[in-house]
Design a protein around this nucleic acid. Structure first.
Lengths: 149, 149
DNA sequence: TATTGTTATACTCTATAACTATA
DNA sequence: TATAGTTATAGAGTATAACAATA
């Protein structure tokens, strides 16, 4: 045990503040683009998967099929995706980017790259690597806790 | 510029993973106690403020008065707080802990202390201080971004 | 007039369960 | 019989606007 409890608590408070502000910053960015957090997440996953049936989206997002219906409804209404027929399975649809959707995801990705450079670009190399190692430690602990239940 | 864009992106990805898992870990803890995130936040703020009119709670939580009505409704139904008459202003109520509510907040605070020690207690001193300094840097950048709009 | 909290209304996100069409 | 997606229903969290009681 090398870190005192009070110092550990201060560090956790800072981490939680980062959590709050980072979420807020990203939410504002999404909102300017006419997107909600859940819809943005869906676009992001869709960019990884390519045109997908809703079932696959649901699994990747960790939400129910019912919920994906609503999220895709919203994305269709706001013009980010379309539902295309699935060739070979008439029960399914392929959620597919419109041009607007594809452009938006591209901008989101660029925006994240920019944020990363803003956050870490000017950090001294030693501090940066210590920070990354510290986050790896934190990740391991949280993952262990979550695995326990 | 000392950090390469790719490394910065990897670091941001890790930070976002920490955000996700930390939120999930805390949400599970709240759920076991019969609390939702918004209601937990309200209890936490109430512990800082002491018995408060809903208007003060709304301001501290950064939500509308309407919303606080709903959150307090939920906390009353589940037995964490009561609405007491405000002595000296018959329009207002004082949101006040029940015994259950007071005990729960105490456990939440203990639980956070425990998490802090789990996360940072065994981290080598140098890495810990670099991590904290790195988070301070990150906080400054995000706060500057949010201030811009 | 201004403030406190509520009702009315609406949108998003989440869930379970029952159902339709297709595999 | 199983799977893909929808409808039905419900609860939580967020918001604006109109309103009643009180300051």
């Amino acid at each position: 045990m090398t870190t005192k409890p009070e110092a550990a608590q201060d560090a956790l408070n800072k981490l939680l503040q980062v959590v709050t502000l980072l979420n807020e910053d990203m939410r504002q960015d999404f909102e300017r683009r006419g997107l909600t957090p859940a819809r943005t997440h869906a676009l992001w996953v869709l960019a990884e998967l390519g045109p997908s049936p809703q079932r696959a989206l649901a699994q990747a997002l960790g939400v129910t099929a019912r919920n994906v219906t609503g999220i895709v409804d919203g994305l269709v209404e706001t013009g980010f995706v379309t539902r295309e027929p699935h060739p070979g399975d008439r029960r399914a649809t392929l959620v597919t980017f419109t041009d607007k959707g594809a452009h938006t995801v591209h901008h989101l990705q660029e925006s994240q790259r920019t944020l990363a450079v803003q956050l870490f670009g000017q950090m001294p190399a030693e501090r940066f690597s210590a920070f990354v190692n510290g986050m790896d430690d934190v990740l391991q602990v949280i993952q262990r806790e979550l695995a326990k239940g």
